[in-house]
Computed example of a mutant assay.
Amino acid sequence: MVAGLTSAALPASADPTAETDAPAATAAEGPWLTGYWHNFDNGSTTLPISDIPDAYNLIAVAFADNLAGTPGGITFNLASGELGGYTEQQFKDDIAAAQAQGRKVVISVGGERGNVSVANPTEAANFARTTHDLMNEYGFDGVDIDLEHGINAQYMEEALRALSEQAGPDLMITMAPQTIDFQAPSYGYHQLARAIPDILTIINMQYYNSGSMLGCDGQVYSQGTVDFLTAQACIQLELGLRPDQVGLGLPATPSAAGGGHQAPANVVRALDCLERGANCGSFTPAEPYGPTGGVMTWSINWDATNGYAFANAIGPRIGT
């Protein structure tokens, strides 16, 4: 999640045949303030799930690991040694307590250094089965796809649909693509989003570690600006996703990313622009989209180092 691709912008376009009105299998209970909780110290801090502020109503546990000997399979290692002796039972109890408050917890797959290959039927089946196993073991509500080394849209769709059949209609599926991933219809995340609107909960684009990218109007925008958020969120919104399936992903502090941090006030402006057509920069959508899916941050741990300033600013704006 920390590292992203720095790349020249590519042509952005939407598929006119994309699904536009497919109902979601999961109820739209957002908006979501999604925060990544990680079980390692990356210069920020570590904390138990029980310390996460209530404003974070969707917690993404980072990260799952490859399951040895099972291609496409995943597992999770708490790494309690890095968490001051935080035990598996405490972790499970804290997840259950957060859920009792009405919050959701998903297992995230990937990140900057992690990668899971789901590129054939066997790997797709293993991914679905082992993810469902983790949901049963820890109580996770679903899965977050944060694979930053490329995905095979065909077999990831196969895996997620198999998981949906196993887990049922309450399954949450979230994704955290990089900005490059929606710059052309040939890219895997772009294809996957078009394929699974009926089971997708939300896409939280990583609007950081990016460099400049094209917006839906064909203009180039630089990271760190309101326009960078609004003009690229427009790509997903015009693709046919519902507004509640589109979120904005930002680093909680400048230290949380290599570039692209923005003040929470800019994130609020971007939400105002997309939802109401107000407080825009140079880019303004042709028509306001109405309530979006919310905001994501990397990470809760980094936000903790800043007195939870990100959650304190964004939570009231989106109502979490």
Rank of each mutant, 00 (worst) to 15 (best):
R317S: 15
I151N: 14
D54V: 04
G30H: 03
V295C: 11
I173P: 04
T305K: 05
A14W: 10
A14H: 10
Y308R: 13
C234Q: 11
P291C: 06
Y289E: 10
E19Q: 13
M175W: 10
R161E: 06
E123I: 14
Y56S: 00
A195E: 11
A98V: 00
A257V: 01
Q236T: 06
Q232E: 14
Y138H: 06
H149W: 07
T45S: 01
Q154N: 09
E157Y: 04
S7E: 13
D133E: 14
A304I: 00
Q262V: 09
L10W: 10
A60R: 01
G240I: 15
M156R: 03
L5D: 06
R242F: 09
A9V: 08
P316E: 06
S50D: 14
R129F: 03
G211L: 11
G307M: 02
R276T: 10
N312M: 01
Y308K: 13
S50C: 14
T225Q: 12
Y221T: 15
G110N: 04
P316Y: 08
P48N: 12
N77P: 02
S299L: 00
L192C: 08
A8L: 14
Y189H: 14
C280L: 08
T130H: 04
G85W: 15
S164L: 02
I59P: 00
E238A: 15
M172E: 04
G293K: 10
D141R: 07
G260L: 01
V268M: 03
